[in-house]
Write a protein that binds this DNA or RNA. Sequence first.
RNA 1: GGUCUCUUGACCGAGUGGCUAGGUACCGGUCUGCAAAACCGUUUACUCCAGUUCGAAUCUGGAAGAGACCUCCA
Length: 495
Amino acid sequence: MDSKLIIYNTLSRQKELFRPLNAPYVGMYVCGPTVYGDAHLGHARPAITFDVVFRYLKHLGYKVRYVRNITDVGHLEHDADDGEDKIAKKARLENLEPMEVAQFYTDRYHAAMDRLNVLHPSIEPHASGHIIEQIELVQKILDAGLAYESNGSIYFDIRKYQEQTKKYGCLSGRAIEDQLSTTRELDGQDDKRASSDFALWKKAAPEHIMRWNSPWSVGFPGWHTECTAMGTKYLGENFDIHGGGMDLIFPHHESEIAQQTAVTGHGPCKYWMHNNMITINGKKMGKSLGNFITLDEFFSGSHKDKDGNEMLEKAYSPMTIRFFILQAHYRSTVDFSNEALQAAEKGYSRLMQAYKTLGSLQASKTSSVDISKYTSNCYDAINDDFNTPIVIAHLFEAVKTINSVHDKKDTLTQADIDELKRLFDVFAFDILGLTDESASDNAAVVNGLMDMILDIRAKAKANKDWTTSDAIRDKLKEIGITVKDGKDGATWSIE
RNA sequence: GGUCUCUUGACCGAGUGGCUAGGUACCGGUCUGCAAAACCGUUUACUCCAGUUCGAAUCUGGAAGAGACCUCCA
């Protein structure tokens, strides 16, 4: 368990050796989705990034408790409808119970994540189920003298916090003094003493339909309290890893640190990890810009942007999306394009094809290729801050070897073949979380049918009846099955 | 305006002070009735300027361009 895992910690802006606080236990909290809309490609990034972290930590033998929240209380809507949260707004528009909306999108989020082969977190707490914990947190911050009540709402007192700790800004690196002196006027800030103060509890306006009782007013919790309250409840006051998208560093994670520090004197975790954004035409893919493509749209291949242009040339399978994301390092931006996705699709299918080929390789007495480094190379790459593109590059070295042996240009012993199989099982499937999409439930039936069809075609070929053999191949192509003739007979694959 | 980050070949994307990642595409070849696949080979790089160095795409300084955050956002 004494691994050499290195993690880039946003807090120190450095790569650090991963040392759990209480090995072999590891606690990890990742900010989950706000369930008021369908998950888009951007949501897949943190889900897959931290899925790999989760999988690798477990692979190393740690007992990981992975908490990923569902934000179903919404956050404040900035513009027009002051004080109304996103879910409430959507609910009013669609004339539904807020929880109906949240449930609907939660289910859809889960379905999309399942297709991406993202493991379920250990605990997936709902913000709405932890209102009491959040109220308790607010009370503790009030007791510590670092919050104040104003018109039934409670605000975090940044100025006072800063006097005592000088810590606000430690994660995002921004100088809070600049913000304290800012003169910018923001809507609905009249109750605050300073514009940088953030809400811990917000009194609900009459039209606000998501509301709970509290000692201060009927209202709803502030923007950042759920993660602090639920993280503490399930992982303790100090846990190992807190993750999320880079766009959450400020103000969300900065404020989480402030809330936790106000109560305990220290931040919530040891390592902060942040994944970068997915861009489209060089711009961040996000809700606010309206330039997002949902995961379901990728899977079905149809999407219209706001000008009615079709952005997707074809459908992209869940594993294509997963492979595409893993081909970039999680701290780099990754740019969406049809060309890039199609490249990923081809690469992914070549990887899977090689794994199948591996199962049918003939062992030799000696190996002409030295494969001893492949596994250690993969470990080195994943240990270096989860460098999945390098892991994939090493897997492709193995692909090259497998194909070369299959073509009888190289040889491998049975032990080496087994070693390669283990390499794929561990890295491609267990850690990167890829699955072979062509392997379906009724595969046995399809295999049998295909054997029969190809047998007929082989006989036609033997009789030089090219009309028949080509007709079979063309017809199969039409229904999405590609036939390839090789030296030892034909093989086939489903597109 | 403030804080921070990035700029690699046709495209996507790693990485490193000297030994040209990887994928996709393209081109040539092997194979094949044809095609595809597979394999082999080839081509195209490190935004610009100056400095440090025996040597920089990699370090330092400057310029240009792009992006993120500062407001809900993964």
